[in-house]
Every structure is written in structure tokens, then in C-alpha cells.
Design a protein around this nucleic acid. Sequence first.
DNA 1: CGGTGCATCTTGTCGGTGACAAGTTTCGTT
DNA 2: AACGAAACTTGTCACCGACAAGATGCACCG
Lengths: 183, 183
Amino acid sequence: MSPYHHGDLRRAVLAAAVTAITENGPTAISLRDLARRVGVSHAGPVHHFKDKAGLLTALAAEGFDLLADALVETRDSGGNFVEIGVSYVRFAIEHRAHFEVMFRPDLYHSDDESVATAQQRAREVLVSGAGQVPGDRDPEVAKLAAWSLVHGFATLWNTGSLSDPGDDPESTARAVAGMLFSK
Amino acid sequence: MSPYHHGDLRRAVLAAAVTAITENGPTAISLRDLARRVGVSHAGPVHHFKDKAGLLTALAAEGFDLLADALVETRDSGGNFVEIGVSYVRFAIEHRAHFEVMFRPDLYHSDDESVATAQQRAREVLVSGAGQVPGDRDPEVAKLAAWSLVHGFATLWNTGSLSDPGDDPESTARAVAGMLFSK
DNA sequence: CGGTGCATCTTGTCGGTGACAAGTTTCGTT
DNA sequence: AACGAAACTTGTCACCGACAAGATGCACCG
């Protein structure tokens, strides 16, 4: 019936991890539960990820890559500085599982090469929008402010910390981000 | 020698938890390790906190109270809107353990009464600065933007996500927060 | 001043988990 | 066809959270 070799266990486990994290948060997952979901023995995933932190390392790297892709897409389709920020928020909400892992470096091997390069790429895309900073401000500071703002909004949204969230995070994010560059 | 009754086990465990979380992050702690640190049996802490989430609930409640205190102090000593934000960042860094727990509602009983009221108080203090919002903007949006900005900066700082952090988070936070209300 | 009730803490236990070691099956290569 | 490596399984160990039951000491009431 089911082959001894799964075929693409690595991908299957990662997908199961995304589902499980979306359901219960990144700390609640267990390798053994993921193995069960995928239909493999309890030590199956270990072979591909070394340990639990290794699995989350792979997820974080994948996340930074997806984020960089999303930001590039927004930038290259003519999105201005604010829209890149909105894209950041959209990613955080749509890929909540990835996002939550990415910014919990205590959960994974943050010095791993794959995650470091992916993270660097995402950072560079974010930086690339700095040339579009309106006004006569210090672009370094403005960039950091914008990143902080969208990151904070996304985090507050995802943690359910907002008292009156509304139902459209994107437009709220757009309004909030616009605050940085108006009057 | 050591008395059967610890005296103030609850406080001792909370303090040990703060130390442990500061060292290894909030997910790495174990009730049994805290019990060991404090010098009681492995089930000692259970009596005071019911379960692990109960311990983190107490920590979160304590954290929201400390945050509200800090913000009130800044506000009442004449701090303007920006300085309240800087105070928020300062709290997040000085009380990193508390802060990290507070915004991980999946780790504790977020509907607990004690934590809910403390959280509400902190929120109200934050709102109270809204009257000072400069310019002619929508104060609701401006408030949310400010909160997002300082929260995001604090989170990025604490997670080590900034590529070139510098050595003075407070002044950086001040510069970044000022970005919202200049030109 | 003596006893009793109760909060506090201990001991013991259970299922679940991560990590590791060793074995088994399949694949790829020659 | 055979052999070595890769993929997965089985087994085990220490640790953890939760729970149950027992031991201890404090406070209060008589």
C-alpha cells in the first residue's frame, strides 16, 4: 500500500507544520504529531530536519523567501513605499504560521546559512524601497520607522491585541502606514 | 533547615521564571526547572498557578500592570506623545521576559480576569495620550500608528532582527517615533 | 492552651515528547 | 545482479506537564 519511501516527506512535514502552527501556534507543535499527520513513524521527520529546531529553521527560511518574493512582486508592479508596507502586513496575515516562526529566533537555528541568506534578501528588498521615501528625512530612520510600523501592526493584529480590529486589516494597514508620510 | 512552607513561593517562582525566560525565551521554561531553581519539589509551583499556562497568565498580568505603571509615570511627569512611546520601548527592553509573554496569548489564559483588566488599563493609558496627537489627523488612526510603530520597533529590537541595531535603543526609538509627527 | 481545619508542599505515577541508536527496506549506480 | 547510500522504522531514555494522594505546618477557634 503505502510505500516505504514516502516520496516527498520533507515537503509533507513542512506543510503539516504550517497547518498545525496555524491551528495551535508554533510552540504547540510536536514532531511526533506531525509524523502522525503525515502517516509516518515517529522518527521519520528527524531524518530530514535533524531536530525540531531544524524543522523550524526550514520553515523560517521558506518564510523569508516567500516574504521577499511578495515584496518584490509589489515593488515591481509599481507599488510605492506604503504599498510595500501593506504587502508586508498582508504576508504576515496570509502566512501567519511562517511569520510567527520567522520572528522567534529562539525557536530555530538563526545562524543557519539558508535562513540567514533568505533573511538578508528580504531585508534588501525592504531597503530598496527607501529611495522612494517622501520628504527630506533621513532615509535610514524613515525606513526603520516604516518597517517598525508595519511589523508592529501585523504583530498586534496576529496576536489579537487590538481592541477593535475591524474586518479589513489591509485597508487599516494602509491608513496607518499612510500616517508616516502625510503632513 | 529549609521550612516546609517556603514563605513566598509564588513570588519566588515568578522571579525565577523571569530569569529563566530572559535566559532562554518563554517557550524553553519548565515548571520542574523553576521548582528546582527555587528549591521545592517538582509539583510545588502547581499549587499556586494551577498549570504552566497559569504561571504565564500571572506573568502576563504582572507585565501589563508594570507597563501601565511605566506609561502613567511618563505621562504624569510631562512626557508628550513621543515620550510615552519611548517609555513603551524602554519597558519592552527592560522587562523583556514579561513583554515576550504578554504578546503570546497562545501561551496563557488570555481570557483570565486579572490579565484582562491589567491589559485594559494599559490600553487606556495608551489611549490617554491621544489628546496630544499633533496635527489635524484622525486621532484613532494616529494612535494605532504610534502603538504599532513602537511595538514593532521593540519587537524587532528584542528579536535581534535589526541588521545594525546600534547601542542605544531609546534614542533610536525616539528618532523613529518622531518620524510620525514631523513634516 | 489544645485541637482541628485548611493551605502548602511532597511523593508517586501516567502519557506524551525530543533525541538518539540501531535495524530494515528501498533506491541509485555500476 | 550487487552493493552502498538514503529513507524510514523500531526501540529506548530522560524529561516534562498533569493529576492523585499523602505529609506537614499554620491559623483560628474553643
